[in-house]
Simulated assay, not measured.
Amino acid sequence: MSTQLGILQGAYEAFGRGDIDAVMNCIAEEVDWRVVGPASVPFGGARKSRKEVAEYFRLLSESDDVTEHEVREVIDAGDHFVVLGYVKATVRATGKPFETEWVHIITMKDGQVTRWLEFFDTAAREC
């Protein structure tokens, strides 16, 4: 297993435990962090700094109660990764449960995430 892959897997495990501080230790100061989707997704949009990524995690926690978050497959291409997974959550504002598969496209350099793109079925969250 590559060092980068080990760090990435550790970050996903930390997220699963709710240890956002450990996740943040893996984020570069300057980062391309994007959740692709409509403006109605409270934690969506682009972020460019570690501080802005911390805001992403705050907004995610405030808007959705994640009850299941599963990494199903990791495709390792050196410093580039594709992570396939599944999430089950409830939208706090409406009480509506949803579940969807997701895809993360990640680039790492020197043990830190420099690019993170998320794609998921945003319609499942809003219907």
Rank of each mutant, 00 (worst) to 15 (best):
V41M: 08
A22Q: 14
R17N: 07
V36Q: 08
V36A: 12
A54T: 05
T114D: 09
L59K: 14
K88N: 10
H104N: 13
S49F: 03
Q112N: 06
A77R: 01
G10S: 03
H80N: 10
T94D: 04
A46G: 05
V36Y: 07
L60R: 11
R47N: 04
R58M: 14
S40Q: 11
S49R: 03
D19S: 05
E73C: 00
E55W: 07
D110M: 00
F98N: 05
D110K: 07
R34L: 05
T100C: 08
G95Y: 02
P97M: 08
T107D: 15
R72F: 03
T100M: 13
H69R: 10
T67I: 12
P42S: 04
V53T: 07
D65A: 13
E101V: 00
V74E: 07
G16I: 01
V66T: 15
C26E: 09
Y12R: 03
R50A: 13
V103F: 09
T114K: 05
G18K: 07
E55F: 04
L60D: 03
M108R: 10
C26W: 03
E73F: 00
V103M: 14
K51V: 11
W33M: 02
R17C: 01
A54M: 07
G111P: 04
A14Y: 06
L59M: 14
H69M: 13
A54Q: 12
V31F: 01
S61D: 12
V23I: 13
D110W: 08
Q9K: 12
V83Y: 08
T90G: 03
D65T: 07
